[in-house]
Design a protein around this nucleic acid. Structure first.
Length: 740
DNA sequence: AGCACGCCGACT
DNA sequence: GTCGGCGTGCTC
């Protein structure tokens, strides 16, 4: 019979782009032909063991067969991917120029990515190890390890030993066969989809506006791939439209993928789904335990649950019979991953829709310029919901000119007056400032010394309630010095204004109001964010101070006034997308005010009230504003009128990063046929982060194909001419910001 | 990415 | 002499 071991191609998560070949021992597969693509295998990788994904057999390897190592264990019986999600992963790896093994593993829930042997494995001393004891120096770690194992006369858990001994000590001993590790491999039995059941979905008695009804009809009619851009102003009943369409999909026993931004918003959305459909809903987001993630993921895979609501990575969930993909708040930046594989879940949702031949709905009140552009060029169909449901009016936007005006710790008098008025009416007020801490910077009044984080070369932010300085880039903190280390002065002053300072000031001005600050600092404890939301809904809070995390999605019925403390950050920024994001933010926060019958007000403090962007938003609407920005982008040939990629490089030595990119840029310019514009290298907006210098190279072209071709050339160049290991590089295709 | 190897300076 | 720092290179 067959004695030749089979050669397997395995995608291993690593920065290497190639797949790796392994031998399949006869002991592992009685019927090698049955081994399906897309199962996990445990393989030796260098001195480590890693989980890889079996891609299939190959007749010849680039390496000599004697050099191939055997697979240690086969971990699954059935593929963890559907044919469509496997194709999607391959597309992702190719389009975003990221190793396939990495993509395939990020597509799986956390639990399936981690090898379990290090947790369950047990360590014993070998005979060779026992014999070795007298021969080694008594002071070495290795001696202590062997003696401890010998004394114990039995096995010790790997986890336990790891607390006393470094991985280096353990691995060296293992390599010398002084100790051995026995691991238990539990096979993962995921059944294939077989479960279907007849469920009765009750017909809704929700009455739709004629506008909603029209949109629902259009969407229900679509059975094959097509992308819709659903533009619905805040309060226009977008969610009800989704629900009606989802209902018709469920009635066909097909499943739904519903993507939401990465914030604490998921529980609220889930509640609405459950209330509406009276069905358990699968979830996938970072707040869940890895076991809970796995459970829900498997239920979708087995077609036991039909609706998956999840953040970015949920775009890869293996629905066996998918019928619809929805991306809610499609303009949200959290759909784009900015580390590792820089994929956009929104864009991949559209790709998946094409692969699975199902309709895709991108919904937003403030659609991204990319999606608006795609309506014109890629056949996305735009559907509009222009009317607010009920009697609510669009809130009025009021610009407060700060020029020459006296500020009361960041607050102008018209804003203070407005807050008082709304307080008198027993209404809620939201004050919005996207800057945590008390003050973003300190300075010595006598010698102008500024405390900075030496790892990032950026000013420390003063957190008064913690009495500490904190670096918002690397997270380092240190106690606040009360005396300048440079000149011994005690005149350390704070500059600028964060949420803490606004909170202090509001407490001073409105001592009888209940004031709540919501930012990453005040919601650090699990569940505290939801508790705070509850407090707001129970009307226990009068004034809410919040950062970005409050701008999205939530609606508070009793809120009638929104104050934007500082709109100017986005007006004159280096980042060409800052204006777009500011506009989206203003419209979104405005949507928070007055969603019910009371007319809302929005106050925006700015030094530039005549800025054309603010004027367009004030006098017209988001649509006009987006048109204006699209025209500007067209004139400057910026995305979406061009395609871009960013080569991101970081190194502990600035010169290494510079040299590498300089050489790359020079080579590219030499080869280039003018199809690709190369800008840089230039330092990232955050030049230095956690001790690493960050440099960028911007690639841009008028067409996607040319840009892709350019990246292809660049990656081949890098692979051929490898930089030293101290220089780490990464490519961000369709970047959304210049930061790393 | 990890992880070990190898080469250097600071210590029992 | 060896411990551990970081710089460098490899992983089928």
């Amino acid at each position: 019979m067959k004695t030749e071991p089979m050669i397997c191609q395995v995608a291993v998560p690593s920065p290497c782009f190639n797949s790796f070949d392994y031998l399949l021992p006869n002991t592992l597969a009685s019927h090698p032909d049955d081994l399906p693509k897309g199962i996990r295998v445990l393989v030796p990788f260098g001195r480590q063991e890693k989980i890889g994904i079996f891609l299939g057999y190959t007749s010849s390897s680039s390496l000599a067969i004697e050099k191939l190592k055997p697979i240690i264990a086969v971990l699954d019986n059935h593929s963890l991917y559907t044919p469509s999600t496997l194709t999607l992963c391959q597309f992702t790896s190719h389009y975003y120029h990221h190793p396939l093994g990495d993509v395939l593993l990020t597509a799986l829930p956390k639990r399936l990515r981690q090898p379990v042997h290090h947790l369950t494995g047990s360590v014993t001393i070998t005979q060779k190890g026992i014999d070795h004891i007298p021969a080694i120096n008594r002071k070495t770690k290795q001696y202590q390890l062997l003696r401890q194992l010998h004394r114990a006369c039995s096995t010790l858990s790997y986890q336990q030993l790891q607390e006393t001994f470094s991985n280096r000590t353990l691995n060296t001993a293992m390599a010398q066969e002084l100790i051995k590790i026995q691991s238990k491999h539990s096979s993962n039995h995921v059944k294939m989809a077989s479960y279907t059941s007849k469920r009765i979905f009750q017909a809704p008695d929700f009455t739709l506006t004629s506008e909603q009804q029209h949109v629902v009809d259009m969407l229900k009619r679509q059975k094959t791939f097509k992308t819709f851009l659903l533009v619905g102003v805040t309060g226009s009943g977008k969610t009800e439209v989704y629900f009606q369409v989802i209902q018709s999909i469920l009635a066909q026993n097909k499943s739904v993928l519903f993507l939401v931004p990465e914030i604490g918003l998921t529980p609220q959305i889930i509640q609405r789904f459950q209330a509406r459909f009276n069905l358990p809903i699968a979830m996938l987001h970072s707040g869940m335990s890895s076991q809970a993630q796995l459970t829900d993921w498997e239920k979708i895979k087995n077609h036991q649950l039909l609706i998956m609501v999840g953040t970015r990575s949920a775009v890869f969930t293996p629905h066996p019979n998918l019928g619809l993909i929805v991306v809610d708040e499609e303009h949200d930046l959290s759909f784009k991953q900015t580390v590792g594989c820089c994929y956009s879940a929104r864009d991949l949702a559209v790709v998946r829709g094409r692969i699975e031949n199902v309709p895709v709905i991108l919904g937003s009140a403030t659609p991204s310029l990319e999606s608006l552009h795609n309506v014109n060029t890629k056949g996305y169909e735009r559907l509009n919901l222009t009317k607010r449901v009920g009697s609510a009016m669009t809130p009025q936007l009021k610009l407060v000119n700060l020029r020459g005006r006296k500020l009361n710790r960041g607050l102008s008098s018209p804003v203070i007056d407005a807050i008082q008025t709304h307080l008198d009416q027993k209404k809620q007020i939201m004050v919005f400032l996207n800057r945590r801490g008390f003050a973003p910077k300190m300075i010595c009044h006598d010698c102008s010394w500024i405390p900075i984080c030496t790892q990032c070369d950026l000013p420390y932010v003063w957190h008064k309630h913690l009495n500490r300085l904190s670096c918002h880039h690397c997270g380092a903190t240190q106690p606040l010095a009360h005396i300048c280390p440079q000149c011994d002065s005690s005149m350390l002053w704070d500059i600028g204004c964060g949420t803490e300072k606004i909170e202090t000031q509001l407490k001073k001005l409105f001592s009888r109001a209940n004031i709540l600050r919501i930012d990453r600092d005040s919601t650090r404890h699990k569940g505290s964010f939801n508790k705070m939301l509850e407090q707001i809904h129970e009307n226990e809070v009068d004034i809410i101070i919040g950062t970005q995390m409050l701008a999205k999605g939530h609606h508070f019925p009793n809120l009638t006034l929104t104050v934007v403390i500082d709109a100017d950050h986005g007006l004159y920024s280096q980042d060409f997308r800052a204006l777009e994001h500011l506009g989206q933010l203003l419209v979104q926060v405005a949507g928070r005010a007055g969603r019910n019958k009371d007319n809302g007000e929005v106050y925006v403090q700015t030094y530039y009230p005549r800025h054309p962007l603010l004027q367009t938003l004030l006098k017209k609407d988001y649509h006009a504003f987006a048109e204006y920005l699209l025209k500007k982008r067209y004139e400057a040939t910026l995305p979406p009128y061009s395609s871009a990629a960013l080569v991101k490089v970081k190194s502990k030595k600035l010169n290494d990063a510079c040299d590498f990119l300089n050489q790359l840029a020079a080579n590219m310019r030499q080869q280039n046929t003018h199809a690709l514009d190369i800008t840089g290298p230039f330092p990232a907006p955050i030049e230095k982060k956690a001790g690493y210098y960050q440099m960028l190279l911007w690639l841009q072209s008028t067409t996607k194909q040319q840009c892709q071709h350019g990246i292809q050339i660049i990656t081949e160049m890098i692979k051929k001419n490898k930089p030293p290991c101290s220089v780490r590089w990464n490519i961000d295709v369709d970047p959304i910001s210049m930061s790393i």
